[in-house]
Design a binder for these strands. Structure first.
Length: 469
RNA sequence: GGCUCGGUGGCAGAGUGGUUAUGCAGCGGACUGCAACUCCGUAUACGCCGGUUCGAUUCCGACCCGAGCCUCCA
């Protein structure tokens, strides 16, 4: 039974890079959906661009969990790589010290964006044996060869190599930017296994002490942890070629099965209209941004555009995200005393849910959140308010948004300096007395004083409440 | 050069062969002691040129502009 066969579910469509079109999602096993997303190379802090696929596929993970009984989501930790070795040597530290530090920081940063931990986080170095086995199989089957201590994949041995990225071998070499190593039989061949220098980490193998090539770990770990075939494989657009193309080559030439059914790729982030790059000096780490914006604001900003569109990540975007998110929390604050059960909401009929089922249309879903908020403001009856609040929370939860205490959200911020709540309440009380005495000059002075501290007052019949601007 | 994807109002960003996207900011009004919040209303749009069509921002073609990839970058 697929989701589409269940009247209580809504069909999910995703854009499949393989085929270049939106397709109905049909899992191979509706009881157990499998998803793999390329994770970090742990040698430095994650930047906000790295966070986009993490947040996007987190939404997909949440959505799939609503649609299917079990979802196994694996995201690898690449803890062996040239850049890690370089970082360790530069810092005169051990490899482990580097990878442990940045694995921990990666988890902290992604948690701050309210992303769920994947079901599995396989480490490359824990799966070396599987990589060696995979390489041996490829050699046995005539798809790989040993040369000068390297083992290389022979791309010409695979008839439809290049299918994912939509290019032929001739096309790929036409650009002629390929630096041809003399140990390659064919310029497009790529490394499965390479020799390790004495001062580099290495593992014993049939080809001597060495370490894996870049693409190998994903193929080996997918097979080891998820099986020969999986439903969804995700990552950034830039990985389509060569990384994912080569994963396909490794996996399909070594074992039966079609490896991945749905390939999903997110577009890049720009920084103030320019590509984020180290040479431009405009790389922003998640950690840096968290100094100035709350994680949920960053998450909201990342979800404000469709994942396949480039998103210009600017201070203005973040300001808008903060305002928009604040208005939603403000709505929830007004009904904070109404108890609801978001679990009871049947999502299938919700427009926001349907938007997400249409290839993760997060901007569409967010607009529906605003529509619910507007209805909530206008509603006068507690029953209706409870119903709307439950829906807003349920749908927000699907996006990983709006799950914090609204009062705390409105009164909180990233800065710890400024007036504390008790001092603010005290001034509000003083202002209330002034208002009662019709001393509006004093009341306004107090309000202006608080505003200067970044505190905005909102009067109502029930009294005065405050929030941080 | 090859392959791929885009160009929507001040900004961000959906979507559609004919009907208000939405948000942020702006303007007008209601509410308020005045504000804020909220509500109501409102201006600004679909790169350019052709074609198909009763009708195109939406389909087709050309053009201009931009982006990504072309061996280790999300």
């Amino acid at each position: 039974m697929s989701a589409s066969d269940n009247p209580n579910k809504h069909p999910l469509s995703v854009y499949n890079t393989l085929g270049g079109e939106k397709q109905r999602f049909v899992p191979r096993d509706p009881q157990r959906v499998t998803m793999y997303v390329c994770g970090p190379t742990v040698y430095n802090l994650a930047h906000i661009g790295n966070a986009r696929p993490v947040v996007v596929f987190d939404v997909l993970f949440r959505l799939l969990r609503h649609l299917y009984p079990e979802v196994v989501y694996a995201r690898n930790i690449t803890d062996i790589d040239d850049k890690i070795i370089a970082a360790a040597q530069a810092g005169e530290r051990s490899i482990d010290a580097v990878t442990d530090e940045f694995t921990a920081k990666y988890r902290e940063d992604m948690a701050a964006l309210n992303t769920l931990r994947p079901s599995l986080e396989p480490h490359a170095t824990h799966n070396i044996e599987a990589m060696i086995e995979l390489t041996e199989t490829l050699v046995e089957k005539g798809h790989a060869y040993e040369s000068a201590g390297h083992v290389l994949f022979a791309v010409q041995s695979m008839p439809d190599y290049g299918k994912l990225s939509g290019r032929s071998l001739e096309d790929m070499l036409a650009g002629a930017r390929v630096e041809v190593a003399d140990y390659k039989r064919y310029p497009g061949d790529f490394v499965l296994w390479k020799p390790a220098a004495d001062n580099e980490p290495g593992w014993d193998s049939p080809w001597g002490r060495g370490r894996p090539g870049w693409h190998l770990e994903c193929s080996a770990m997918i097979r080891a942890h998820l099986g020969d075939s999986i439903d969804i494989h995700g990552g950034g657009r830039d990985l389509i070629f060569p990384h994912h193309e080569n994963e396909i080559a490794q996996s399909r030439c070594s074992h039966d099965g079609d490896f991945v059914h749905y390939w999903m790729h997110n577009a890049y982030l720009d920084m103030d209209g320019e590509k984020m790059s180290k040479s431009l000096g405009n790389v922003k780490t998640v950690r840096e941004l968290l100094q100035h914006y709350r994680g949920e604001v960053l998450r909201f900003a990342l979800l404000s555009a469709h994942y396949r569109s480039p998103l210009n990540f600017s201070g203005e975007l973040l300001g808008q995200a903060e305002s928009a998110l604040g208005s939603l929390y403000n709505t929830l604050r007004d009904v904070r005393h109404i108890d609801v059960d978001p679990e009871a909401v049947e999502l299938a009929g919700e427009a926001a849910f349907q938007a997400l089922c249409d290839d993760l249309n997060t901007p569409g879903a967010i607009s529906e959140l605003h529509a619910l908020a507007r209805q909530l403001h206008k509603s006068q009856t507690p029953v209706e308010q409870a119903w709307l609040k439950a829906r807003l929370l349920a749908l927000g939860g699907l996006l990983g948004l709006l799950q914090q205490d609204p009062e705390a959200w409105m009164q909180g911020g990233v800065d710890d300096d400024g007036l504390d709540a008790a001092a603010i309440e005290e001034k509000i009380a003083a202002r209330a007395r002034a208002k009662k005495d019709k001393d509006f000059a004093l009341a306004d002075a107090i309000r202006a004083e608080l505003l200067a501290e970044g505190v905005v007052l909102e009067d109502s019949r029930e009294g005065t409440q405050w929030r941080r601007a």
